[in-house]
């Protein structure tokens, strides 16, 4: 079964499956233990190393450590950043991170939509939202405004095993009732190319005002999961790895681009649109009767057509012309015995250089304009009652 087409072959909206977009991805940690080596952590010894790669490694990969660890933090700044480039745009569903040590008292989740050039908050987790992030704690009613916003949730709780779980549903920051299909604001909210986790404040094991009492803190975590769907705007059911190692959508419906975010060059009879569950909004090939390889979109024609067709064929070949290469160019006429799509659908007028008054024939009948007394489709004979003269200006004169 083809998720992007129905049984009759008609296009329908389709989306890739839900995956852990972080699985196997590189993680950039601002702090990792083991350089220089300590008794507990040695970056050069696989049995005692705690690299950031463990955050996104497949479960059960090695017999060694399973948790990433930061360096021991004693004084400010106590924040550590974990950045995961996802490789392309994803539509996020959830983010989770399992802590191997007591979970931090404050964590910020950020996203980038431009491969790390700019960042925007997705959510905050803190026992003191106002002090750490300048935000009120989670209001019972959810976002105050009409659109999604980064809210401050309670910090993750310590569990009996000494760890804890940070779990964030991306739609938690969104007002109820917004639908991904119909809300561009929500589509923007869930879209990310990179995820950043900022471990802002540790759960200090001591009184920070008393330097003697402060115990060095180590952030430690594993299983960073970024649940989401490869973003293909409803025009692909899977993403594929290119030869260069880039992840791209397997675009259908006449679309192209890493996110199927534009129409293919010849598929511009109407503007690109994201597919919905009700309408695939497929890009449609221009109608050029097989005589052109390129076309462009004209919004004015599209409006005038009742938003049905706006494609204009470019460089019509085979002596055709017109917006759809649907008639013959000047000096040619339609051969009624051939289909419009036939490479030889247009025949040269072939008007006689002396008998015809011009070189352009009737585009439908092929009749050339004849001088007085001349007849024939190409004006190559004298009409009955006329005979050929010696003058090329009046090639046929009345028979005396």
């Amino acid at each position: 079964a083809d998720p992007c087409h129905d049984e009759g072959g008609a296009p329908r909206g389709c989306v890739p499956g839900l995956v852990n977009a972080a699985l196997g991805r590189e993680v950039l940690a601002s702090s990792t233990c083991g350089r220089p080596a300590t008794r507990a952590c040695d970056a050069s010894d696989p049995r005692r190393a705690h690299p950031a790669a463990l955050l996104t490694a497949a479960a059960g990969g090695t017999a060694g450590p399973v948790c990433w660890r930061s360096e021991a933090l004693v004084r400010a700044p106590l924040n550590v950043t974990l950045t995961v480039p996802l490789g392309k745009a994803f539509e996020l569903v959830f983010i989770s991170l399992r802590f191997c040590s007591p979970p931090p008292a404050s964590v910020a989740l950020l996203k980038s939509q431009d491969h790390g050039r700019s960042w925007a908050p997705l959510g905050f987790f803190s026992s003191r939202c106002g002090m750490d992030y300048g935000r009120p704690p989670l209001p019972a009613t959810g976002p105050a405004g009409p659109g999604p916003e980064a809210l401050c949730f309670p910090a993750p709780q310590a569990e009996p095993d000494g760890g804890g779980l940070l779990a964030f549903s991306v739609q938690d920051g969104s007002p109820p009732g917004l639908d991904l299909d119909s809300s561009p604001v929500l589509q923007d909210w869930v879209t990310a190319t990179d995820i950043r986790v900022v471990l802002t404040r540790p759960a200090l094991l001591g009184d920070p005002r008393d330097s003697e009492a402060v115990v060095p803190y180590v952030y430690s975590a594993t299983e960073l999961q970024v649940g989401g769907r490869c973003k293909c705007n409803g025009h692909a059911s899977q993403c594929l790895l290119e030869a260069q190692g880039r992840l791209v959508c397997d675009c259908q419906h006449g679309t192209e681009g890493p996110d199927c975010g534009r129409c293919k060059p010849f598929y511009c009879d109407r503007p690109w649109q994201r597919a919905t569950t009700r309408d695939a909004h497929a890009c449609i090939a221009c109608s050029c009767n097989g005589h052109a390889r390129r076309c462009r979109f004209n919004m004015e024609l599209y409006r005038l057509s009742g938003r049905r067709s706006g494609g204009v064929c470019l460089n019509c070949r085979h002596d055709t012309a017109g917006r759809h290469c649907h008639y013959c160019r000047e000096g040619f006429y339609r051969d009624p015995g051939r289909a419009l799509s036939d490479r030889r659908a247009c025949r040269a007028c072939d008007c006689h250089p002396v008998g015809a008054a011009g070189k352009t024939c009737n585009q439908t009948t092929g009749q050339c304009p004849c001088k007085d007394g001349v007849t024939g489709l190409t004006c190559n004979r004298c009409a009955p009652g006329f005979q050929q003269s010696r003058s090329p200006v009046a090639p046929c004169v009345k028979t005396p």
Binding site: V374, R381, C382, P384, R390, S391, C396
Partner: peptide
């Protein structure tokens, strides 16, 4: 009656050299 096609060799181009088609 089908008239014969125009015979280009019969035309006198003396005064119309500029109109003479290239052969």
């Amino acid at each position: 009656e089908v008239m014969p096609t125009l015979d280009m060799t019969l035309f006198d181009w003396t005064d119309y050299e500029d109109l003479k088609p290239e052969v």
